[in-house]
């Protein structure tokens, strides 16, 4: 087919387009729209993956993790945000990323851009990561961050969904951080810094609206753990969580 097409094109070049086989569309103005309607649409999505209350050993916390994207199948503009605020008002951690995402394979996107920390203090990072669906339906999001101070850190997150019924979904989730050097102003030691593992049970009232309950456990690791104990922080933190998963 290809070689035949090439032959035809070659023939066309030699003989001239008396009645062009090759050639542009006949209705260019409406063709543009037709092409857009058949594969070229741009979409957007806004999702709050976690929007939850955590018991956090008595220091109740509101935590969020969400993102939004706009674009087509290959190229998307992303905004990610994540953070925690004490229920009595103080925001402990807040960050947002602005990323360009590119589909590189059927199930994976590479994303690159900048991350801005707002709390505990302002800090800017370059961010590069990969996200997608690994074999066995694991949702993966792995990122590396280079801070304005030159510190290199990384995070890895994986989720899985187990359908108990068509609407009741058990979602185990694990997240871990890694620092390539000590990061003094974040109380991080080189090596794996922390791990958080949780399981959430959600009920999809609609696909877009799902309240959930769950439990989350986290602890600092390695050198970071030593720093934490020096600061008098608890090692193990087990928390009940109640929240909503929302998207549109």
């Amino acid at each position: 087919m290809k070689s035949l097409t090439l032959t035809l094109i070659a023939g066309l070049l030699v003989t001239g387009p008396a009645l062009a086989q090759e050639g542009g569309p006949t209705f260019p103005e409406s063709r543009h729209e037709t092409k857009h309607e058949m594969g070229g649409q741009l979409q957007y999505m806004v999702m709050a993956d976690r929007l939850e209350w955590q018991s956090n050993n008595g220091d109740e916390v509101l935590a969020w993790e969400g993102s939004a994207w706009y674009g087509g199948n290959y190229n998307r503009l992303w905004i990610d945000t994540e953070g925690e605020a004490l229920i009595d008002g103080e925001t402990e951690e807040a960050e947002a990323s602005l990323l360009y995402g590119r589909a590189v394979s059927p199930y994976f996107d590479i994303r690159a851009g900048v991350r801005q920390d707002f709390e505990p203090d302002a800090k800017t990072y370059a961010q590069l990561g990969v996200m997608g669906l690994a074999p066995y339906w694991f949702e993966i999001d792995a990122n590396a961050y280079l801070s304005e101070d030159g510190d290199l850190t990384a995070s890895f997150e994986a989720e899985y969904e187990l359908l108990l019924t068509q609407r009741l979904v058990l979602q185990p989730r694990v997240e871990t951080g890694f620092a390539f050097q000590d990061v003094a102003d974040r109380d991080l030691g080189a090596g794996f810094t922390d791990i958080e593992a949780g399981v959430r049970l959600r009920y999809e009232i609609k696909r877009e609206i799902a309240p959930y309950i769950g439990v989350s456990w986290s602890r600092p690791l390695g050198e970071t753990s030593s720093i934490a104990s020096r600061l008098g922080e608890k090692e193990n933190n087990i928390s009940a969580v109640i929240g909503f998963r929302l998207w549109y």
Binding site: L8, G11, T15, A18, L19, E37, G39
Partner: peptide, 17 residues
């Protein structure tokens, strides 16, 4: 709408046209 669409052009072969 997802893209599974093409145009088939039936036209004379260039040399015959």
């Amino acid at each position: 709408a997802g893209g599974m669409f093409r145009v088939v052009r039936v036209a004379d072969a260039p040399h015959a046209s």
